[in-house]
Design a protein around this nucleic acid. Sequence first.
RNA 1: GGACGCUUAGCUCAGUUGGUUCAGAGCGUCGCCCUUACAAGGCGAAGGUCGUAGGUUCGACUCCUACAGCGUCCACCA
Length: 907
Amino acid sequence: MNEFSTSTLTKVYSPAEVEKKWYEYWERNRLFHARVNPDKKPYTIVIPPPNVTGVLHMGHILNNTLQDVFIRYKRMKGFEACWIPGTDHAGIATQNVVEKSLMKEGKTRHDLGREKFIERVWEWKRQYGGVIIKQLRTLGCSCDWDRERFTMDESLSAAVREVFVRLYDDGLIYRGNYIVNWCPKDHTAISDDEVNYSDQTGKLYYIKYPIAGTSDAAIVATTRPETMFGDVAVAVNPTDERYAHLIGKMATLPLANKPIPIIADEYVDKEFGTGMVKITPAHDPNDYWVGQRHNLPQPVVMDISARMNNNVPPKYRGLDRYEARKLALADLDAQGLLVKTEDHTYAVGRCYRCETVIEPYLSDQWFVRMKPLAEPALKVVLDGTIKFYPNRWVKVYEHWMTNVRDWCISRQLWWGHRIPVYYTADGRFTAARSEQEARIRLGVQPDDPLRQDEDVLDTWFSSWLWPFSVHDWPQHEKAGKAQDLAYFYPTDTLVTAPEILFFWVARMIMSGLRFAPSFTGTDEPSKNIPFRDVYFTSIVRDAKGRKMSKSLGNSPEPLDLIAEYGADAVRFTILYLAPLGQDIIYAKEKNEIGRNFANKIWNAGRFLLMNRDQIGEAPKTAEFNTDHLDLADRWILSRFHSTLLDVENAMENYEINKVTKVIYDYFWHDYCDWYVEMIKSRLYGDEPAEAKQAVIARALDLFDAALRLLHPIMPFITEELWQSIRPRAANDSIMRAAMSEPDRSFINKQVEDEMAFVQNVIESVRAIRGEMSIAPSKELSVVMKLRDGRDADSIKKYDGYFRRLARVTSLSFITDQSRPRLSATAVVQGDELFVPLEGIIDIEVEKARLRKEIERVSSLLKSVQAKLSNENFVAKAPKEVVEKEQEKLNTFSETLEKLQRNYAALS
RNA sequence: GGACGCUUAGCUCAGUUGGUUCAGAGCGUCGCCCUUACAAGGCGAAGGUCGUAGGUUCGACUCCUACAGCGUCCACCA
């Protein structure tokens, strides 16, 4: 498995086989599996269960990459990291999918009947469901697959029943005849949160309702004339003097020819329309409450498909609501009762699943009383027991939780958890965990008829229990999961989209605080909350800033991306682009960032292996070999440990894009661009073999450490290289290796300053080369004139670096004015540097170069001078700041002087 | 109508207690290079009065206010 020879490493990294190979290896060795381990602290994440009908999209890529990064990072940091995967049964979505396939056979679910239909859904689930779970493997997710759950598993159904009964017994679940959001296509109620509103331009119709016995008429304005058949009153504002005389009179409902009263109610806005409103209690939520206040009847005039029912005049019966609207308007117009029609923009609510315009509809539904659940759930977020990242979502949460409305949990579907309520023949009912329990509760004999409620529960009624139901609560004892539940609950981090803050996040907090005490045995909120941190992910948008979605067709196909760029590259790229709390603008081509980086890592590995094979490696003693250290070594060790600190810090704050940037910069620019280039001068120089082998060992140590640092983000390539660079034990994996711990004793400011000088010299020579268009292969000489107190030997010892990185083949020093006549010059930290360019130099180019540099330094100098001559500044600014400015003044003026002298020497 | 977020190089974005060798990176552009890890690469260069207008301060990309543009969430008048 390990110890490749260099020849097997191709020049360009090809991820496909590598990724497949290692994922199989990890899974085969059950390296993702977490078990209760008292010696380690647990770190748990439960996956936001994707719909069982779902396929991977870019949002999942981001969301699951983040979770995998957290899990892999914590695992390497010594935690027992457990990522629990699973899928959601997704009531409406799944039922729709199966109904669609039935339609192809010319059947409806009613042709099959409930039992057969549900069987059919299970069959579908077994065959096609959970594709997304397989796709997550492609992405490299290290989920504990032994713990995979489905929200319709028997154990999760038990949790649903338990919770329902408890809430029912506590009086928090009730049944009522209320207006709900009805989807005429899915034939079910949906919750307030499942309705999406969008502005739409429609018409506002003014309709005349004659008033019996007078020539007067009430003129009402409505956007939905078809609901007029359900009108039971006309309302005016009690303070509206225009209509005071009409209150108590009867108006005639046109077309239906029914008398309805004119009533007064505060709800009516005097300014809108005519100030008179038709009241339709069964088809409008506001009208419903008006009707309640005035004890009005609630005639329902549509059926479950929003077709007019038998409560309307015969000619309208059976018509779709929009056809009925058309016909009613025509009839009203014919009778001269349609006064006028205006354009009107208003918000239309649509079903979040099928986009059908919802119909407010009066029906019997089950509700959860939310206030008592919301209060403690709000508290733990406000007091920081649960933290939101970014924090601003706390305000949104607070607003919702203080204005929370009761949750309609019944759905008129077949696919889902059946409501555990049982009715006797004479109409008594109770909630119960089982039919047997219901019989006991109701005092009903085993052979007496008992009927279970036909409806199922909202999908979220099972997902809100997810953090503990995954451990088979309330049957955890029986299932042998008691220890797991105690050890892995609460979870640590929840990674989810802000869109489901209310649907899911808020409700999980409520359910955790409400039900966890029964297994944690404490009322302490911090032990009962379902998670400690919530990370809200970015929205992935396209180049035009539009949200990526299936319907817009503007999203790349994730699996194609992975096939083309590699999973590591896709993971790296999306994290690199995703700042905490900000949306991300995504385009396929961006994956070149990750792909190129992977290739860079790959080639660094090739370089090291090649040299190891040729030179050999000193035997391993500590994490980092510290024999034969020189400047570059001390510097890279210093840089590495500061990088570790930065990564740790950014990780704690969930600044993952910062983590990727820090590592990227370190690896590419510090390790590859400088360090690797610098050790070449030693590896190919004339040092003793022992020193060279120490250099190789150290470079490999650092590479090993960098691979571990990178592993959570790019799991595959790091495993491949980690296994190749050193012999590893059988079944070992980088994912089980320890992350390096930052050690401040390696961080050395003097070393970094010294290195900065060497880098500046090299960069100055390179800049001259670049400006003069001198080929990199052309060898150059450098003459230096040092400022007072500087020792030439302290610079000469870096000769090898200058030779290797700037192609400086001759370095000499002068102390007088004998500078080479035709040379380009630079000033590096006060030391002057001359590059003799006899025959190559273009005087004008060099003069222009120097002029620009002189300008730059002059403007710096000027601003420092301005500051120091400002009395207020000197008097009020802190002493250190003033001193610093004073130092700058000296440096700048010295540098400027030298530049000007060298400029003069050219003319 | 209410709340929140964003506005820095052509593009996508960094910029942590306010102190100009921090105005930066990547992509793109231009120039020189296939230098024995990497052209998916190396080196260098050009390019921005940090949305607008005020204010606080010795000093603001960084704090405050207003405005503009973009975006998100919530509520909603029939």
